[in-house]
Design a protein around this nucleic acid. Structure first.
Length: 557
RNA sequence: GCGGAUAUGGUGAAGUGGUUAUCAUCUGAGGUUUCCAACCUUAUGUCGUGGGUUCGACUCCCGCUAUCCGCACCA
């Protein structure tokens, strides 16, 4: 980073802190790495970005918003693969207090302890009794998962259950699949969105808002039928050339429809969400020249993912990934199904019901049941797969490998016609995941404009009206001759409107007050002056053009 | 986690082993001013934290915490 960019970054960070947009959290206690406050000005910016994001997706019409707990039981994140991927299993030496990685301790007792589950590691630890590398004792605490996820205990004392603060919002949407499916009248495609906090106990949070331990995420899980081609309408992006970096290739510029048709973007829904993501980022104020989409390389992508694109935004820290759009296949729902035995599926009706003629053998329950007892189920399965020509008595090999003698009285002819109208399948998921803090950082970075005014550097935060923290400032030119009262009254009127915030400021010269408002990006300032006293008009001054126009005060009520 | 640098009012900077720590700016109050950081008066506010050396530490030494820059991992 050059000195020029560096000092701009310092001025930007200084301004964000000074004006209460983004500041280190808990600073009077010394602060804590990777934790930031959105201050009195930033809090509303975050809220408005979140709301804009929600509105953006719900406008599709088949998206519902949910909100799941951040405290998540161990089993959920074990099923999703996060426990294995995000954490190490640790155990403490009760003699000296030194913490050790369980898999490292057990290397001499197992060929690949890294691959063991927590339960197996615990068992192996108890059996093999390794000594503490620090003090030589052998007195280990129970194994706990630690590291990139925040550990917590749900419930008090020993009866408590192990849990984590969620590292992403996605899992709650997968575990709620059945409810979502019903709500959407059991019809795909549909999506669920969630905006909320996620937590990762990063080893080394760095670069301000870019890597946080507690962060704001916004995720959409869009459930689709892998066998149905969705015809997305890409025409609204025909005029836009997207900057794309394909897996292993050079940066190119292409229209979205071209990139999807050529197969560069491997799934049209991924392509559609790239377009939606582009629109959202532009809406909140990202400079389109500083935005590109990069395809994950095969070895970077999670093994189950079919395609993954990151939206990267250029700012003071270089190119930073702020959104990930991943085709996750059926991985997540499958994982929770496997772990719980619950059905997380959607139904697909066949165009033509399938008719299956069955003509073979099955068991005579009243005879075979008492005869085979516990094996009866397996015997039934084996017999139903036998050809019609089979002669009884007959020796049958059942699933467990056991041989059983089946006599004619155990069986009967099975002749029927089954009509199957459809099937159950695990939907595929396309997931756009947004790092809200990273996006807000870049919005601020792109909006932060320094212009020369005389010899001075003048700061303007060119935020879009949609996400500006303060909508209006109201100034009396002077606080005398009744101008102060009129301005206060106007300010109160504007604040009382739902969703609108106005700030009253009477201190300092009028120029200073405009400058203060510009620095935090207030789009419009309203000034009450002498003329107001005569004809009830005020001036509206625009942040970006500096232009003023007079309007009647009543038109602002 | 490893290596390097840093920590002084809200912000940005000076400075010293010696008893009221300096400046600019910001902020508050008052005045002045007919619209883009004007001016005058006045006030508030600082040595990150814990220990050590010392008669005395903001200053020297050691932990800790935080920040910034490299290395490894990620939204």
């Amino acid at each position: 980073m050059s000195d020029v960019e560096n000092s701009r970054l310092e001025r930007l960070s200084g301004m964000l802190k000074r004006r209460g947009i983004i500041l280190p959290a808990f600073e009077i206690h010394g602060g804590s790495k990777g934790l930031y406050d959105f201050g009195p000005v930033g809090g509303r910016i975050r809220n408005r970005v979140n709301q804009t994001w929600i509105d953006h997706w719900t406008s599709l019409g088949n998206i519902t918003e949910i909100s799941c707990p951040t405290v998540t039981p161990y089993e959920v994140l074990e099923a999703s693969g996060h426990v294995g991927e995000f954490s190490d299993f640790m155990t403490d030496c009760n003699a000296c207090g030194e913490a050790s990685r369980a898999d490292t301790l057990l290397e001499d007792f197992h060929s690949n302890p890294d691959a063991l589950s927590k339960t197996d590691l615990q068992k192996l630890l108890v059996e093999s009794k390794p000594n503490c590398p620090a003090c030589g004792a052998c007195d280990w605490s129970d194994i706990s998962a630690q590291n990139l996820m925040f550990n917590t205990t749900i419930g008090a004392g020993k009866s408590g259950r192990q849990g984590f603060l969620r590292p992403e919002t996605a899992q709650g949407m997968f575990t709620s699949f059945q409810s979502l499916y019903r709500h959407n009248r059991e019809r795909l495609p549909f999506g669920a969105i969630q905006v909320g906090k996620g937590y990762r106990n990063e080893i080394s949070p760095r670069q301000g808002m870019i890597r946080l331990r507690e962060f704001n995420m916004a995720e959409l899980e869009y459930f689709i039928d892998p066998e149905v081609d969705i015809n997305h309408d890409f025409s609204k992006w025909n005029e836009i050339s997207f900057t794309l970096i394909p897996d292993g290739g050079e940066e190119i510029s292409k229209s979205l429809s071209e990139a999807v048709e050529s197969g560069l973007i491997r799934h049209s829904t991924v392509g559609y969400f790239i377009g939606m993501t582009y629109d959202f980022l532009i809406k909140v104020g990202i400079n389109p020249d500083k935005l590109r989409f990069r395809q994950h390389e095969s070895d970077e992508m999670a093994h189950y993912a079919l395609d993954c694109w990151d939206a990267e935004i250029f700012g003071s820290y270089g190119w930073v990934e702020c959104v990930g759009i991943a085709h996750r296949g059926c991985y997540d729902l499958q994982a929770h199904e496997d772990a719980t035995g619950k059905t997380l599926r959607a139904r697909r009706e066949f165009k033509e019901p399938k008719t299956i003629e069955i003509d073979g053998w099955t068991i005579e329950g009243s005879v075979a049941g008492p005869a085979f007892r516990a094996l009866a189920g397996a015997v039934k399965e084996a017999i139903e797969s036998l050809p019609l020509e089979t002669q009884f008595p007959c020796e049958v090999i059942i699933a467990s490998g056991e041989k059983v003698m089946v006599n004619p009285e155990h069986v009967k002819r099975n002749q029927k016609t089954e009509v199957i109208s459809g099937e159950w399948f695990i939907p595929h998921v396309v997931e756009p995941a947004f790092g809200i803090d990273r996006i807000i950082w870049h919005v601020l970075d792109h909006a932060f404009d320094e212009i020369e005014k005389g010899d001075e550097r003048y700061t303007v935060l060119r935020l879009n009206q949609e996400i500006a923290s303060i909508d209006y400032c109201v100034f009396p030119l002077f606080e005398k001759d009744g101008m102060g009262e009129i301005a206060r009254q106007l300010n109160n009127k504007i604040c009382s409107k739902s969703g609108v915030i106005s700030l009253y400021d009477s201190s300092g010269s009028i120029g200073r007050r405009y400058a203060r408002a510009d620095e935090i990006g207030v789009p419009v300032c309203i000034t009450v002056d002498h003329q107001t006293l005569e004809d009830n008009t005020v001036t509206l001054r625009s942040r970006d053009s500096g232009e003023q126009k007079r309007v009647n005060i009543e038109s602002l009520y």
